[in-house]
Amino acid sequence: MHIIVCLKQVPDTNDVRIDPETNTLIREGVASIMNPFDENALEAALAIKDAQGATVTAISMGPPQAGDMLREAIARGADNVYLVSDRAFAGSDTLATSYALAKAIRTLPAADLVLFGKQAIDGDTAQVGPGVAELLGLPIITYVRKVTVQDQQLEVERAFEDGFERMSVPLPAVLTVLKETNVPRMASLRGRMKAKKVEVPVLKAADIEAESHHVGLTGSPTQVIRIFTPPKKQGGVTLDGSHGQEAAQQAVALLRERKVI
């Protein structure tokens, strides 16, 4: 069984701060991490590998620095990694990214299962998983919180706002997984020592036969025309809660006055 996991390197939003002077994001010194939901996707793949044997390939589209994240995937137990990276991909939106990833997946040995995290925490779009599935012509189940594989058949729980559906789908298929699916393992010492020595292979546009008008800015239907900081909340009231009762009564009065309760 061959499982391909798509990973994205993202800035650690726990570190992101706003510059109070300019009201802009301070990205300096912000660590890059594996997208948290993608960690769950990788863990789901490794759990299947542990339980019944599988080859796990992790791929990522991004700048050369994303190689570090792929080494982390090796350290945790991925068998192969590929970095899909080319200047031509710069500025890709979700359609162009889906195209490049789908092309890359097609150049690798046929996958039985393609896994994504629910969404990336920098863009929060949740569009690339379904996009890749569409371009590969594979069925997809999104928002999966439990995965089991048996005889070329997947059984999963797909979460909804108020419950879940137990579903089945034959392989090959694409899944996007939720945080509840598992607790991602931490890399082992031997894995980490091994990963240090790994050279991450790079797939360029030509290697995956990506056509230039489908990638990068030209391949991206959407364009960002304006970026701005949301207006700061005005007119907030601060109450001294050192004597709980008074503050509580004021707060409740305000809420009633504004008809929130």
Binding site: K233, T238, G241, Q245
Partner: peptide
């Protein structure tokens, strides 16, 4: 913590101990 960033987005901020304020909120309600 009066400096907690949550107060930057709050319409009503109560600086105080949750265990003192919340029971009082329940009473006031």
């Amino acid at each position: 913590d009066a400096n907690a960033p949550i107060f930057d987005v709050a319409d009503i901020g109560i600086v105080g101990d949750v265990f003192e304020v919340v029971p009082q909120l329940i009473r006031a309600l």
